[in-house]
C-alpha cells in the first residue's frame, strides 16, 4: 500500500488528446508527488500547454486519465492549487492590497495569510501597473502561496528578474516544497530547469526524455571548435548547415561526429582544435526535439 505522501498530487496516465487529425498529446504519462519540483520542457507545439490544460481539468483527454489529488480535476480540486502564469494574472488597475483581497476572496482564503515582503508591504496603495515587473512577480507568488496550496503550477516563474531575486523566488518555492507541496514548472530556460528535481521533455506530443538533468544530458556530446579565426570557422560550418551555438570565442557544433567537421574546416583552410565534449541541457534538448 502506498502512503498518502507518495500519492501523486497531479497525474497523467497514458493521456492523449486529438484535435481533428492532429495529435497534440500522444500517450503521455507524468506525475508530481509531494515534496518535489518537476520541470516540463519542450519546444513550442510540443504539447505542453495542451497537457497542462488536461491536468487542470480545462480540457478533456481523448484517451487516458488526468487526475488532480487522486480525483477528476474540478473547481473544488483547483481550490488547492496555486497557479502563476507568465502573464502573472494580476489586475494592473487595482492596487497591491486590492489584488491580494481579490485573489483571497476568489480562493475563499484569509487575505492576512498572504505574506508580502517588506518592500511590497509598503506599496499596498500603489497600482500594480505602476510597480516594477520584479515586484509584480513577487506579488503574484505571494498571492498564489497565500492559500497554502498543495500543488503549484508555475509558468516560467522567474523570467525577467535579476539573478538574486530569482534565487529568492526559488527559496520561497523550496520552502513551500519543504512543507510537502508539489510543483510543476514549465520553462524554456535552463537556469530554471536546473532548479527542478526531475524533468520531463516533450517533443511532438510525446515524452522524449525524462529524469534528472544529469540523466538527460548523460552520454550526449557536441563537437567544440576552438579557432583563432572563429568567424571563419563559423562561416564554413554555417554554410554546411550545422546547428551551432557560441560559447565565447568557441563554437559548439550540435553533432557527435567530428570527422566531417574537421574535413570542412580543413577544406576551408581554417585551422582549429576540435574536441568532443559533454553537451549541456539545452543542446540535449535540441537533439531530443529533432528526433
Amino acid at each position: 500500500m502506498t502512503s498518502p505522501l507518495d500519492r501523486p498530487l497531479l497525474a497523467a496516465e497514458h493521456v492523449s488528446r486529438r484535435f481533428g487529425e492532429l495529435i497534440a498529446v500522444d500517450d503521455v504519462s507524468l506525475d508530481v508527488r509531494p515534496g518535489e519540483i518537476v520541470g516540463l520542457l519542450g519546444a513550442n507545439g510540443a504539447g505542453k500547454t495542451t497537457l497542462i490544460r488536461m491536468l487542470l481539468g480545462l480540457l478533456r483527454a481523448s484517451e487516458g486519465i488526468a487526475s488532480m489529488f487522486g480525483t477528476t480535476p474540478s473547481r473544488e480540486t483547483r481550490r488547492r492549487l496555486g497557479y502563476v502564469s507568465q502573464g502573472l494574472g494580476l489586475y494592473r488597475d487595482l492596487t497591491v492590497a486590492e489584488n491580494v483581497a481579490f485573489h483571497s476572496a476568489a480562493f475563499g482564503a484569509d487575505p492576512t495569510a498572504v505574506r508580502l515582503s517588506d518592500e511590497l508591504a509598503v506599496m499596498g496603495d500603489r497600482l500594480v501597473g505602476s510597480i516594477g515587473l520584479g515586484r509584480q512577480r513577487q506579488l503574484a507568488f505571494a498571492c498564489a502561496l497565500g492559500n497554502r496550496p498543495d500543488l503549484l503550477v508555475l509558468d516560467e516563474p522567474t523570467s525577467g528578474v535579476d539573478p538574486l531575486a530569482r534565487a529568492r523566488l526559488w527559496d520561497a518555492i523550496r520552502e513551500h516544497v519543504g512543507r510537502g507541496a508539489g510543483v510543476l514548472v514549465t520553462t524554456h530556460y535552463m537556469e530554471e530547469a536546473q532548479q527542478c528535481d526531475r524533468l520531463v521533455l516533450m517533443a511532438a506530443g510525446r515524452v522524449a526524455a525524462a529524469g534528472t538533468v544529469d540523466q538527460i544530458v548523460a552520454g550526449r556530446r557536441v563537437v567544440q571548435v576552438t579557432a583563432a579565426a572563429w568567424s571563419d570557422a563559423f562561416a564554413v560550418l554555417s554554410d554546411a548547415g550545422y546547428d551551432m551555438t557560441l560559447a565565447g570565442r568557441r563554437i559548439r557544433v550540435l553533432t557527435t561526429d567530428q570527422e566531417p567537421v574537421q574535413r570542412l574546416l580543413s577544406a576551408g583552410h581554417v585551422s582549429a582544435e576540435l574536441r568532443v565534449v559533454p553537451a549541456v541541457l539545452d543542446e540535449a534538448m535540441v537533439a531530443v526535439s529533432a528526433v
Binding site: L41, G42, A43, N44, A46, H188, M190, F234, A235, S238, D243, M244, T245, L246, I251, L254, D282, M285, V286, S289, A290
Partner: peptide, 15 residues
Amino acid sequence: VDPVSRVELWRLIAE
C-alpha cells in the same frame, strides 16, 4: 522563444 528556435536565432546572431 523555445530552446529549438533559440538555437536558430543564436545561429543567425553569430552569423
